[in-house]
Design a protein around this nucleic acid. Structure first.
Lengths: 210, 210
DNA sequence: TTAAAGCTGTGACCAATTTCACTTATAAAA
DNA sequence: TTTTATAAGTGAAATTGGTCACAGCTTTAA
């Protein structure tokens, strides 16, 4: 049996997956680790190492069959499975995510939006079903939502996460700066706080000078 | 001389910085690595190790003075320095970022917005100065912009990045799924693609089951 | 047919990071 | 004052992840 795939490799394989789909659209049927490395900004060695966690998939001597490699990544990472998502918090950011056109062909469907302010629910023009916040866990369970997006202000974020987890989501994208606490082994949380990212960039600007 | 601060530590220190500011607002004047660890979701060892890169700052036996620790992080990471930012692409997401209220007391000022569509520039209601895309590098240089946010569709992202770098930014937050290529040592790029994050979460859902 | 160049798969090596054990110090309680 | 509990600082060990060298195969060109 092959060793478990390291976290950073999983991330890079997801990026590779999207690249492969683009390459296929461009009509590129074969590709080498060197070319992939150039496109991804990493060394060819690393590309091969990452791909190797999928098992043998390339042709030694010639490179990879683009479609076969794409299929292998998709299958191994379970990306052939469609998943439902929802958005909690329908301010500017939440509304922008609801309307984000890239979800259309992505394999992810946003099936619900939530806000505690009933006025917002009536104002927003969308085909997606909207609900009051107290309905989160019910709707999540009923609609089989696996991914929740948190786009509420920091003080409301933990409560939103608790309700999402209660409903059974297995992944959360947290746009608030709040540090979400949870004790469920099966839930993954990704933090996307733009102010935090500004801060990290800023720190690097200071420290990289040395 | 102390060793350079590892990348993951820099990230955690930035998160710690915000936590400390919150704790000070709550009036907490002293805190231990154990408490910090609980709040941050990491072990006390790691908290101490990270903080130790700042030099001695705690009091052995009692914990840390919250304000002193906060000041030490701020100083060391250069977070006392205010920085200007700009947003390229004023669709829903870009507009949401322009209007994001959290920038107000963050130390970051958004001083310009750009779009190639002149109609957008006239429609959006904001106090921030808006410009056509061809002016990016000039305005960035003139207004001393250090951080650029890319909120354009993927095909336009590389061009936006090139113009930002040409203007002299040292950090980029890329919301598009495009892989930005650049050869300037002094520029850092952070990718924040929500579809990519969905994909990574999805992959973990599949793989964590093992 | 042969040689040269280029490719993947993989085990071994190496670097970065995390975890840990222990020393030293403080504070509170007895 | 003494004891107990608890704290930070830090070098060392352990782990994790990344780099590399090379065996074995393919393609192309001569």
């Amino acid at each position: 049996m092959r060793p478990r795939i390291p976290r950073p490799t999983i991330t890079r394989l997801c990026i590779l997956f999207r690249l492969l789909e683009d390459l296929l659209i461009e009509g590129k049927t074969r590709i080498s680790s060197t070319e992939l490395g150039t496109a991804l900004g990493v060394r060819p060695h690393s590309v091969r190492k990452d791909i190797n966690y999928l098992g043998e998939v390339g042709d030694i001597g010639s490179g990879y069959d683009t479609a076969r490699l794409r299929d292998r990544v998709r299958r191994k990472l379970g990306l052939d499975r469609r998943r439902n998502a929802c958005v909690v918090g329908l301010g500017r950011l939440g509304s922008a995510i609801l309307a984000y056109e890239r979800f259309a062909n992505s394999g992810y469907t946003i099936v619900a939006g939530f806000d505690s302010n009933i006025n917002k629910l009536e104002t927003i023009r969308t085909d997606i079903e909207l609900f009051e916040a107290y309905e989160i866990s019910d709707v999540v369970r009923r609609k089989n939502v696996e991914i929740g997006v948190i786009a509420v202000p920091a003080p409301a974020a933990q409560e939103a996460a608790d309700r999402l987890i209660e409903g059974g989501v297995r992944g959360i994208v947290n746009f608030s700066p709040a540090l979400i606490r949870h004790n469920v082994e099966t839930v993954n949380i990704t933090n996307m706080d733009i102010v935090r990212e500004f801060t990290i960039l800023s720190a690097h600007m200071t420290l990289d000078r040395e």
